[in-house]
């Protein structure tokens, strides 16, 4: 399922003294089975954009097309239920939203709300709990007896249980330890590759954006500053640094080294392997070793 925006804008409390233009002139497109990362400062409009992706907000100008449904500023869409099922949003700290007595009930809550019979929902719960890397016996436990990392997976399982086509993740690794972070990022990558689910990742981690995404959208002061492949985005690292954004540590190190040496080493390295290879080639060419 594809999502496309046309001159999308959203102003909070329009026509009041508190009017605040959060986003404007947004033209982005999220292809089927793609992995998109949205990066930008706190306050750059990422969260406002995110809430349009499943119709939680209606644009105040322009439009957004989600699959066959168009939501525009002019007309209020009525059939948003199906959109909300197909585009699952996992908000920050989703474990705060767990509430049922057992993990199974919590996961079944969403599908049953959408009219899925209980037996079927339970079957689905068994399926998704494995997809998030937990074992079936956890289904009987209270979500509040789990560790933070497990709770987060359960919350994600609850969204997966609705069979979404698009999974939108707002800072999904915040607060996790490095191992938990890697595990959960690998899991999303797998969901995309094995289930064909599109991933939209809102993140501060430039490493994750460059490692996993095939399309990066840079938000700045309420609009799209730049978009493209990780290679396009990080080809001019200084530009991003001037915006006050980070760049992957490999890119940052290479830039620092190039500034010191006063020569360009290679295109920005997006992984450690690339950086090592580029440094090595640079010295081999100059036969420094």
């Amino acid at each position: 399922m594809e999502i496309t925006t046309k001159n999308l804008a959203y102003t909070y409390q329009a026509n009041t003294p508190f009017e605040h233009r959060a986003i404007y002139d947004i033209n982005v497109s999220i292809a089927s089975n793609s992995y998109t990362a949205i990066i930008g400062h706190t306050g750059s409009g990422k969260s406002t954009l995110l809430q349009h992706l499943n119709g939680l907000l209606q644009p105040t100008a322009g439009e957004i097309q989600i699959g066959d449904t168009i939501i525009s500023s002019e007309k209020k869409q009525k059939k948003l239920r199906e959109i909300r099922r197909r585009v699952g949003i996992v908000f920050q700290f989703p474990e705060h939203q767990l509430f049922e007595e057992t993990v199974e009930k919590d996961i079944c809550f969403g599908p049953m709300n959408f009219g899925v019979p209980m037996e079927e929902a339970k079957k689905k719960a068994k399926e998704v709990i494995l997809q998030v890397g937990l074992s079936e016996d956890i289904l009987e436990k209270s979500p509040f007896d789990l560790s933070g990392g497990q709770m987060r997976r359960v919350a994600i399982a609850g969204v997966l249980a609705m069979n979404p086509n698009v999974l939108v993740l707002d800072e999904p690794t915040a607060g996790l330890d490095p191992r938990g972070r890697t595990e959960i990022m690998t899991m999303f990558d797998k969901l995309r590759k094995e289930q064909g689910i599109s991933i939209v990742l809102v993140t501060h981690s430039m490493e994750d954006a460059s490692l996993y995404a095939d399309h990066i959208i840079v938000m700045h002061k309420g609009t799209v500053y730049k978009q493209g492949t990780p290679h396009d985005i990080f080809s001019n690292p200084k530009e991003l640094i001037d915006l006050g954004l980070d760049v992957p540590e490999t890119v940052r190190f290479q830039l620092k080294l190039e500034e010191k040496i006063g020569k360009r080493i290679a295109d920005p390295s997006l992984s450690l392997q690339d950086l090592v290879k580029n440094i090595q080639h640079f010295f081999e060419r100059g036969n420094g070793l």
Binding site: D177, R179, E249, L272, Q273, V276, I279
Partner: peptide, 18 residues
């Protein structure tokens, strides 16, 4: 369950390459 700082990872790889 922790990580190795970036500079350490890089240095280790470079040492491997001589």
């Amino acid at each position: 369950g922790l990580d190795i700082p970036f500079t350490h990872k890089l240095a280790k790889q470079l040492i491997k390459h001589g």
